[in-house]
């Protein structure tokens, strides 16, 4: 035991607890498996330990010791690869897949949360060693609030309006509002679709959102979330019943067609508005400088 033992232990505990809090096993996150959870808890513990050690190593003038943080970076990049690989492999077995963009988003989140843990335990140990235990508690709570702010991304409901719309057939063409979805030939299938299907039109609130909701990965994420929450009326080998999203080229609205098992329209609208806007789908064409490339 030396003067650093208690502060380090304290920060490691705070860091690990914050990682546990960040586990939100909801309908879309994947660690619903106890073993997946243990892997991430262990990594969270390692991240907390790394963050807690920074300040003591500087105080004892072991500056080179800080280089172990580079270890952390490569270690946690591996977490992202691991998540991406697992989810991609599982995705082939989903009735409505997540899509590569959604998987990448989840994988990046897993990596990012470990860095948040490093940050929290670093701030906690800094406050403990430079002030006292109460200050470190306050610092832990504050950094925790900052982390929580960064943990939750934007939702689709913020950038677009969601309306329920009717499905209709013009000849063999299936339409949501006036957006063409696909050609369904057999009358029996058409009846099935009209009976079980739901249609929604998502209209962007501004030009940036128009590009974002047009992204194929973002569209797949909407379908996946809907299918996970409401169930889906299809099986393997029934491609005619695959939920689809098509775009109106004139105004950027997208038409969502899905055959859910639970036909609750209000719930479906709520789910669509809660779909995360994927980080890699966000486009901001309006941010482009007027003079173009010579401004960069």
């Amino acid at each position: 035991m030396n003067e650093f033992t208690v502060p380090i232990l304290f920060s490691v505990i705070i860091g690990t607890l914050s990682r546990i809090y960040m586990f939100r096993t909801d309908y879309r996150q994947y660690p619903t498996y106890p073993h997946g959870m243990i892997i991430h808890l262990a990594l969270g513990f390692i991240a907390a330990a790394l963050g807690a050690l920074v300040v003591p190593s500087i105080m004892s003038e072991e500056f080179t010791a800080v280089t172990f943080l580079t270890l952390a970076a490569s270690q946690f990049r591996e977490v992202r690869n691991m998540e991406r690989k697992t989810l991609t492999e599982m995705d082939t077995l989903e009735l409505v897949p997540r899509g590569a963009s959604y998987i990448e988003g989840i994988a990046v989140t897993f990596e990012g949360r470990n860095y948040l843990v490093i940050f929290i335990s670093f701030v906690t140990s800094l406050a403990y060693l430079s002030l006292n235990v109460w200050a470190s508690l306050v610092a832990a709570v504050l950094s925790f609030l900052v982390a929580r702010k960064y943990m939750t991304g934007s939702k689709l409901g913020k950038i677009a309006y969601i309306e329920h719309s009717t499905l209709s057939f013009e000849g063999a063409g299936l339409y949501v509002d006036n957006i063409y979805i696909m050609n369904i030939g057999i009358p029996e299938r058409q009846e099935e679709i009209l009976k079980h299907g739901l249609g929604f039109v998502i209209s962007p609130k501004n030009f940036d959102a128009r590009m974002t909701i047009g992204n194929l990965g973002q569209r797949q994420a909407i379908l996946h979330d809907l299918a996970i929450s409401l169930g889906v009326y299809r099986d393997s080998g029934t491609p005619a019943l695959v939920p689809l999203i098509k775009r109106d080229l004139d105004d950027g609205r997208i038409g969502v067609f899905i055959l859910p098992q639970n036909n609750n329209v209000e719930l479906a609208k709520k789910i669509i508005s809660q779909v995360p806007t994927l980080e890699n789908a966000i486009r901001m064409p309006t941010e482009t400088k007027e003079k173009g490339s010579d401004q960069s």
Partner: peptide, 18 residues
């Protein structure tokens, strides 16, 4: 035609388009 198309759709894992 409807009947054959429905059967073939199921057998071939494709979509019957008109």
């Amino acid at each position: 035609m409807d009947k054959v198309a429905a059967e073939l759709e199921a057998i071939l894992d494709g979509i019957a388009h008109k």
